[in-house]
Design a protein around this nucleic acid. Structure first.
Length: 139
DNA sequence: GCCAACGTTGGC
DNA sequence: GCCAACGTTGGC
């Protein structure tokens, strides 16, 4: 199984909103970046991802699961980009802040640290379990 | 509010 | 196909 990180401005789409969608999940639309789209193409049903709040908060607040693989994003009028469907799985009990990630030398190769502008990112297995531990998530 | 990083666009 | 200009994201 692969791991990912989904970034969102809480003012646009928040973890609270995602959770309200429950098991039905929500299409992760609006991505207009090839690198991010390629990451979504690589996703498989059952893959897990962190839900990250960018902007003022800058922390990992939840865990999502990919429930629908890459398909066209109908909100893209050019018909170029696609999306995946994700559902909320659980909260991260102690949200992991960006500064905590940066402060951890074991995590300094994370895309979150090195490519701040990429909105859909791959996460290594080792990084995943370390952050889960930091966040008090029981895997 | 500013600015660095970076992706995209468009002229040549 | 290159590269300058521009726009956007996101951290600070």
């Amino acid at each position: 199984m692969a791991y990912w990180l989904f970034k969102s401005e809480p003012g646009t789409w928040s973890w609270t909103q995602q959770k309200k969608k429950g098991a039905k999940g929500e299409p992760w639309d609006g991505v207009r970046n090839y690198q991010a789209a390629n990451n979504m193409k690589a996703m498989k049903r059952g893959d897990k991802g962190f839900f990250y709040h960018s902007g003022k908060e800058r922390l990992i607040v939840g865990i999502v699961e990919v429930i629908g693989e890459y398909r066209p994003d109908i909100t893209d009028e050019k018909g170029i980009f696609g999306l995946v469907d994700v559902k909320a799985v659980k909260d991260v009990p102690n949200p992991v802040t960006l500064s905590a990630v940066k402060a951890n030398t074991k995590l300094n190769e994370m895309v979150l640290v090195n490519n701040t502008r990429l909105s859909v990112q791959p996460v290594r297995g080792s990084e995943w379990s370390r952050i889960c531990k930091m966040g008090g998530v029981t895997e």
